[in-house]
């Protein structure tokens, strides 16, 4: 939905900005004191004001409906999830727990090798439950144009689906104390087959752990 709103909004914003700058530039050149004219004595344009106000209300109403419906579409659950993951934010790293398996991926975020990797399959609906173990964090994956805050004692849930494989950087986006700036994670989207074999290997490793 980001692109559906961002580009129309950017075009509208640039248009409005352009119009205002042009009118401003015109008035500064045309009505500068050096031209030896007198300032207009008029201080009301009632009809123009009313028409302009109506146009504004019209544009604002359109935008309001547009963004509200974009949000409704974006927040709608995608369907029956194939994979469910609980994300826990803590000071100062992440852990990812795969439901119905003993697999939990975590790290300390202290250096690049300690950044936890969230492995997900492409083309499948993934259901995330997001919680914090301490303060308010925020799970942000810029590639997915998506973030949500993690609260202590409350699960926020959302669905995501990835269409292409790859590794994407994510991070905490709500200031959460001293080492907020290193609270990173990686999301690795792999093919469903690769995901299944990864999860099986992880399950075996988890089971063999004492």
């Amino acid at each position: 939905m980001f692109g559906h709103v961002f580009w129309p909004y950017t075009i509208i914003a640039l248009t409005v900005f352009g119009i205002v700058v042009l009118v401003l530039a015109f008035s500064l050149i045309r009505y500068r004191a050096g031209r030896g004219h007198e300032a207009s004595a008029k201080s009301k344009h009632s009809v123009l004001e009313a028409v302009y106000a109506l146009v504004l209300v019209g544009i604002a109403s359109f935008l309001a409906v547009y963004v509200a419906s974009a949000n409704a579409a974006e927040r709608r659950p995608l369907g029956r999830p194939q994979v469910s993951v609980t994300i826990t934010g803590f000071q100062w790293c992440w852990s990812f727990t795969y439901h119905h398996t003993p697999v939990t991926v975590s790290g300390t975020c202290k250096n690049a090798s300690q950044i936890p990797v969230l492995v997900v399959p492409t083309h499948e609906i993934i259901h995330f439950s997001l919680i914090s173990a301490d303060v308010v964090h925020e799970w942000w994956l810029p590639y997915a144009r998506w973030k949500e805050e993690a609260f202590p004692g409350h699960y926020n849930t959302f669905d995501l689906r990835f269409t292409k494989t790859g590794e994407f950087n994510g991070r905490c986006d709500e200031y959460c104390g001293l080492y907020h700036d290193r609270m990173d994670f990686k999301l690795k989207a792999v093919t469903p087959a690769a995901f299944t074999s990864w999860l099986t290997a992880q399950t075996r490793r988890a089971a063999s752990r004492p």
């Binding site: 939905m1 980001f2 559906h4 709103v5 961002f6 909004y9 963004v67 974009a70 949000n71 974006e74 925020e138 942000w140 810029p142 144009r145 998506w146 973030k147 949500e148 986006d173 709500e174 200031y175």
Partner: peptide
């Protein structure tokens, strides 16, 4: 909101 899910913070 759709833009804020990217730009917030």
């Amino acid at each position: 909101p759709s833009l804020d899910y990217q730009f917030h913070g």
